[in-house]
């Protein structure tokens, strides 16, 4: 019986590297390495976004943001329920965004979708505050809207930075 040919000798180093390189969409690189590949501005924007999310979560459960919510001005249960649904959706967006960044898969597209959803939340919240807000509720309304607008502007910055990175590659 003839000996088996040595397959390894036929494979070049370049081919081996190519085989060992994870395919896009299946590479769980982790947030840290994903952020390391991006600009400092992207990194700080992402960390600020996570910081705001965490602070919002704590403030919500402690009850610190209750006076700033539309329900405080209108006294309607439905406003509170609407906020709860959006609160849940926002955390779904954060989860999807974090997962996309971890896998380095369609990050820009995910952030674009999140930014549009956030824009919908901002516009409807603005109109709601403007239509139902009493004069004494002006300051809480402005505070709440500024948080929403900060999140929106952070998302826009992330999209711009990601687009720049893609162009540079």
């Amino acid at each position: 019986m003839s000996p088996m040919p040595d397959d390894k000798s036929n494979v070049t180093q370049e081919e081996l590297d190519s085989l060992q390189r994870p395919s896009p969409g299946t590479d769980l690189t982790g947030i840290r390495s994903a952020l390391e590949r991006r600009s400092k501005r992207f990194k700080y924007c992402w960390l600020t976004l996570m910081g705001i999310t965490l602070s919002y979560l704590i403030a919500y459960f402690v009850g610190l943001i209750d006076p700033f919510m539309p329900a405080a001005a209108t006294g309607l249960v439905v406003d509170n329920q609407l906020h709860q649904v959006r609160f849940l959706l926002a955390f779904v967006m954060v989860t999807v965004g974090t997962t996309a960044l971890s896998f380095d898969w369609r990050v820009e597209e995910i952030f674009v979708i999140s930014a549009w959803v956030q824009a919908y939340f901002v516009v409807t919240a603005m109109v709601r505050q403007w239509r139902s807000g009493a004069d004494e509720a002006l300051l809480p309304s402005i505070a709440m809207l500024s948080i929403l607008l900060t999140i929106f502007s952070l998302l826009i910055t992330l999209i711009i930075e990601e687009r720049k990175r893609k162009t540079d590659l």
Partner: peptide
């Protein structure tokens, strides 16, 4: 693709809002 996806996500969010909260009022 991205435009339609954004519209789809918004449509589903509006549906969720209506289904879970707004239908009753």
């Amino acid at each position: 693709g991205l435009t339609v996806t954004v519209l789809t996500v918004l449509a589903w969010i509006m549906f969720l809002e209506d289904f879970m909260v707004l239908d009753s009022i």
